[in-house]
Design a binder for these strands. Structure first.
Lengths: 147, 147
DNA sequence: CTGAAATGCGTGATATTATAACATTCATGT
DNA sequence: ACATGAATGTTATAATATCACGCATTTCAG
């Protein structure tokens, strides 16, 4: 992500929050920035390290609260299988499609692609109502195919 | 799961391991039994508690090693979004279909349904090779629909 | 049989991930 | 000013998972 598109993404995120009647506070914005800057999924405690050049501030709750906010706002996704977080380029609300995107994660280079409107699970058990889906695919992206 | 079908499942698991040239040792068998007995996904430290009526034995590595073995053998799945484990009724090898089943988990009663040959992700990025997929759906099973 | 190698497990310590509980600050409306 | 509520700071701890070492047993070539 270029510095320019990062700025744009942050502005878009801010607008997205305002629409929702919420505030993208400095801490939240900084966390989002760090997540978006990263090449791939980021760990919460790596964010924590990155957040504290200064002495006192930045304890675990700080980053987890910011991440919770950003996830609720649909700006960040958690990669459950990695206990890590990725930025969401679409800035969609997470309501209405089960709260989860379909993620394609390259184990080689860390690149993450996100898709929506994914495969409707046609083979759900009869009568099962899906409220939230976690769909994560791990493998090699086009650029990282083994020779 | 009835006591009778539990015994059958354990015997089948043992046969499954022998086929693979591996051993279902007492510790592994006991862990599998505990996972199968449970109503729903089980936490590793709950297994740990259940494993130690005696004083000394049963430390975290014991249960994690057993779980690793059982997962590799395809007898147990990890629910990534819950950090919990479920027994696998099919006793399939996990090779050949991305290492993951599609799980339907009732948040109300904890029931887990497992499906295979799930939705081929038609919208994968071009050139992406999937090695492992995590697909977990959370919601209400037929018996737990809200009134 | 014997000894090297592999495997499984016990044990203590520690790393990693996440939350609880309570205090403080700050913006906002009245 | 004062009350209120949201966000954050702060301390502690819970929950999840792995490392590293050593011992016991099995396996099997020689």
């Amino acid at each position: 992500m270029t510095a320019d598109s990062l700025t744009k993404a942050l502005d878009a995120a801010e607008a997205h929050c305002v629409e929702r009647g919420e505030k993208l506070t400095p801490v939240r914005k900084r966390v989002l920035e760090l997540v978006l800057e990263a090449d791939g999924p980021v760990k919460a405690y790596d964010l924590l390290e990155a957040l504290k050049p200064g002495p006192g501030s930045a304890k675990p709750p700080t980053v987890y609260r910011a991440l919770d906010f950003l996830m609720t706002a649909g700006l960040v996704h958690k990669v459950e299988a990695l206990n890590a977080f990725v930025g969401c380029s679409h800035a969609h609300d997470q309501d209405g499609h089960g709260g989860g995107a379909e993620l394609f994660i390259c184990s080689q280079c860390g690149a993450v692609e996100e898709r929506h409107g994914g495969p409707v699970p046609t083979n759900a058990p009869a009568g099962f109502t899906i409220l939230r889906s976690v769909v994560e695919h791990f493998g090699h992206c086009a650029a990282c195919q083994p020779a």
